[in-house]
Design a protein around this nucleic acid. Sequence first.
DNA 1: GATGAATGAGTTTTCATTCAT
DNA 2: CATGAATGAAAACTCATTCAT
Lengths: 200, 200, 200, 200
Amino acid sequence: MSPKKVNKEERRREVALACFDLIHDVGMKNITVAQVAKSAGIGKGTVYEYFENKEDIIFEIINVHIEYHHKMFLEKIKDVKSTKEKVFHFFDFVMNETEENIRHFNGYREYLSIVLAEENESMCNFNTSCTEFFQNQLKEIIEEGINNEELLPIARNFVDGIMLFEKGVVLMKMTQTSFDAKFSCEKFLNNIFEVIEKKQ
Amino acid sequence: MSPKKVNKEERRREVALACFDLIHDVGMKNITVAQVAKSAGIGKGTVYEYFENKEDIIFEIINVHIEYHHKMFLEKIKDVKSTKEKVFHFFDFVMNETEENIRHFNGYREYLSIVLAEENESMCNFNTSCTEFFQNQLKEIIEEGINNEELLPIARNFVDGIMLFEKGVVLMKMTQTSFDAKFSCEKFLNNIFEVIEKKQ
Amino acid sequence: MSPKKVNKEERRREVALACFDLIHDVGMKNITVAQVAKSAGIGKGTVYEYFENKEDIIFEIINVHIEYHHKMFLEKIKDVKSTKEKVFHFFDFVMNETEENIRHFNGYREYLSIVLAEENESMCNFNTSCTEFFQNQLKEIIEEGINNEELLPIARNFVDGIMLFEKGVVLMKMTQTSFDAKFSCEKFLNNIFEVIEKKQ
Amino acid sequence: MSPKKVNKEERRREVALACFDLIHDVGMKNITVAQVAKSAGIGKGTVYEYFENKEDIIFEIINVHIEYHHKMFLEKIKDVKSTKEKVFHFFDFVMNETEENIRHFNGYREYLSIVLAEENESMCNFNTSCTEFFQNQLKEIIEEGINNEELLPIARNFVDGIMLFEKGVVLMKMTQTSFDAKFSCEKFLNNIFEVIEKKQ
DNA sequence: GATGAATGAGTTTTCATTCAT
DNA sequence: CATGAATGAAAACTCATTCAT
């Protein structure tokens, strides 16, 4: 909490941000400390002033990366009115094929690869909290929909199912080149909403 | 003169099998060729008589591993009578907590890590075919269930959903330490069967 | 001189001959014993029945190669009548741009590379005898020319010079891509013959 | 803050120089990076701070080696007055039997071996420029001789011949143990000067 | 604080040669 | 005689981390 620590935290972010293009070019696991230093315009030794080790650097990069996308998620969902749209927005991660989202998706794929290798405990923990974040978001969306009388109370039972379905789509999209995520999601969501939407 | 020709395919399997414990101890990506050679009780150079390179070794190990489990899957499902049981069996991979299955599950986790890193094309292709194998198995189970009049024809619409749900459970179980796969699956499957099962 | 030895000598030649294309494809220094065995259609171990070691193989290949070209040289020079033509023929090695001669020239380049590396004493010795062979050929050609009264007796003084000039052209052609061997040789030889040719 | 930046070019030279004895002992192609590091009194990794790869090391060693001898050539020729002496000096490389020149000559032999193996493009190019350097030096010497009225204008026609003769002597000396370079050169040069020298 | 030069452990891969059959 | 399976020494190269300045 001392001013120094704040500064350190800031510097970590700066370095992480400076690595965005680098990550894209060479991949998360292939970056070297030398490249990080160069990208950030600092000395190799200086990197170690702010980071414990290389893992710590990758962790920070992912942190910044994902926090940004969480923020974007909240940002975008704010302006969305109907619950159905919000839930569809929840699937944006796997359905949106914009350049930006593809980059983000690929970044998450690399991240997941590291997590599955169980190479980094803090990254595993962070992944847990990310999942929980989105799980809670979905829960809130659904609850709000019930409160708004857009959804039937039964919708509550489907929160986990929807979330797990989305995870499955993530995995399929990451591993199966011919998988049509958009088609699967739309079919699934429309079916679900048949059941949970309150009819006037 | 003497027919000393060795069956390469068989030797590959033997070496791969000899690495099972090794894999468990150090992880798939961390094995060294030296360790493989030692585990198989052969020289380092001999390893290269049977494998192109280190990736090829890992690939063979995974192949043997997964083929075994495919065979086991078919074996076990043969004796199962009801369609519901068969579908539950389809979820055995994520629900079964026996020592053996946990090892298999962890093997697949490591494998997935490599696939997600997109480091090895042949492994990506192999993963694709694995997914297709199980997808087809599920399709057959459901079709059979419909033919047997155990399931309603509407069940066909749920094949993809079930498969994606399972994938989602796989991913959650791999990344979320506190996730209760068994509970989620049972709830989901019971709900599904409420809808697709033919009532007498 | 026992029949076995003769047989062995023959087998060596056979193996060497079988390697001609191989040499061309991968280069003299890069051939492996395994490739030699395969090219010759025999087992790797059998190669060692006929050759001491890898160097011995290369040596035999070069031997066969060069002997063949010595034979060709003698063959072709037989039909040549005038001394001037014979001397020009002596320069065929560096002036002839037929596919076949280019292959031969490149073979000799590789061979020289090994000799210069002083890696193989027997090859050095063999090279010495090759040089002597051609030096003697030139000497004979010139002597014959003097006897035939085509050349002046002074021509004897130029034998070494011509031979060394040819060596120089060999080296230049091997190392300088833009060197025009034909042009240099023709100019040189025409100048020389101005001086040594007997005018009627 | 402190300017610890190291002069890479200088360090390359230092390492190269430190390898002179090593080269002599084991040969240019047989040195290992480990040996280079040890000879230079640095770590193996440090070698790679200054050199791209092993070839780069060898190249630098040759560069330093040859540059030094070019410099010596120019140095020595400066003090030589008569054109004849200068041309004899041009043949110093093959005639001089001092310890130092023998080492230099052997170094060049090894170098040529690499060039002839066509293993290294930059070394081939460098060799081309070396040849051109000496060719130009000879041209200048001859032109100067003509200007000084020491040589007849006809001398111009002999530049290429002299150069190629020297190359031939180089090759002979490198491959024929019993070859008397000094004798051949002296005979040749005296004959040539009979023709090109201006008589008073 | 900042730096970047120095480091060396650790890994993959090749291939001539041997020798049991 | 012939074979080819087995071998292991040997070598290049990478890169996270340290620490003197």
